[in-house]
Lab assay of single mutants.
Amino acid sequence: AEKTGIVNVSSSLNAREGASTSSKVIGSLSGNTKVTIVGEEGAFYKIEYKGSHGYVAKEYIKDIKDE
């Protein structure tokens, strides 16, 4: 099942092309942005936001229960 997560940073969080800190940054998400978690790979979540996919470090995403 898809989960919703909240970007848990004070400034912004980089979204990357792949599940690695050396992957190209494809965008950034500001704190408290809601994202859909579609998968996980190592220390990263694969997320969907406004129709695009990217990878973000798990430690900066807070899971919330689907309402």
Rank of each mutant, 00 (worst) to 15 (best):
S28G: 05
G39C: 07
T4H: 10
Y45T: 05
Y45I: 06
G18L: 12
D63K: 09
A57S: 10
N8T: 11
A1T: 13
T4Y: 13
T4L: 08
A19C: 07
V35K: 00
I6Q: 05
N32P: 04
K65H: 11
G42D: 07
K3N: 04
K3S: 06
N8G: 08
I6L: 08
G18R: 13
R16G: 03
R16D: 02
N14V: 15
S20W: 06
I64T: 07
I64D: 06
S28N: 09
E41Q: 08
G5S: 04
K24R: 13
E67I: 14
R16L: 15
S20R: 05
K65Q: 12
A43E: 15
A1L: 14
S30R: 14
E40L: 05
F44Q: 01
E48L: 15
S23E: 03
V7H: 01
S52D: 07
G54D: 01
I61V: 08
E67P: 12
G18M: 12
V9I: 10
K46H: 05
E40R: 03
I61T: 00
Y55T: 00
V7S: 03
G31E: 09
I61S: 01
L13Q: 03
N14L: 15
G5Q: 02
A15W: 15
G31I: 10
K34G: 03
G39L: 02
I61Y: 01
A1G: 13
A57G: 09
I26W: 01
G39P: 00
K3A: 05
E2W: 15
K50S: 07
G5H: 04
I37K: 00
E17N: 06
E17C: 13
G5L: 04
G54R: 03
E59I: 12
L29P: 01
S12D: 09
S12W: 11
T36V: 14
A57M: 12
H53K: 04
E48D: 07
S23W: 02
A43C: 13
I6C: 13
S52K: 13
S23A: 11
I64M: 07
T33F: 06
A19H: 04
A57Y: 11
V9W: 05
K34M: 11
V9M: 07
E17L: 08
T33M: 09
S22G: 09
K24E: 06
I47S: 01
S23H: 07
G31W: 09
E59G: 05
D63W: 10
S52N: 09
N14W: 12
R16K: 05
A43D: 15
N32G: 15
D63V: 15
A57F: 10
G51V: 01
S23T: 06
S20I: 07
T4G: 04
I47G: 02
V9P: 08
G42P: 00
S22Y: 06
N8P: 04
D66C: 14
K62T: 14
S10C: 15
H53D: 04
T4W: 11
A57C: 14
Y60E: 06
I37V: 04
K46T: 03
N32T: 06
L13N: 01
K65C: 11
K24Q: 07
G51L: 03
A15E: 02
V38Y: 05
F44V: 01
I47Y: 02
K62P: 02
V35H: 00
S20T: 10
L13M: 06
K62E: 08
G39D: 06
E40Y: 04
T4D: 03
G31M: 10
G54W: 12
G54V: 13
S20Q: 05
Y45L: 06
E67Y: 11
D66T: 12
A43G: 12
N8F: 09
V25A: 05
D66Y: 15
G39H: 02
G54Q: 03
L29Y: 02
E17R: 05
K62M: 11
E67L: 14
G51T: 05
Y45N: 04
I64H: 05
I6S: 04
H53Y: 15
K34H: 08
S22P: 03
Y55N: 00
I64C: 09
S28I: 14
L13E: 03
Y49G: 00
T4R: 09
L13H: 03
A43L: 11
A43K: 10
K46I: 15
H53I: 14
A1H: 14
N14E: 15
I61Q: 00
G5W: 05
I61D: 00
K50D: 11
K3M: 10
V35R: 00
A57I: 09
K62Q: 10
E59Q: 10
T36H: 10
E48N: 09
D66L: 13
V35Y: 03
K34W: 07
N8C: 15
F44L: 02
L29T: 02
S20Y: 07
Y49K: 00
E67T: 12
N32A: 08
G39E: 03
I61L: 06
G54K: 02
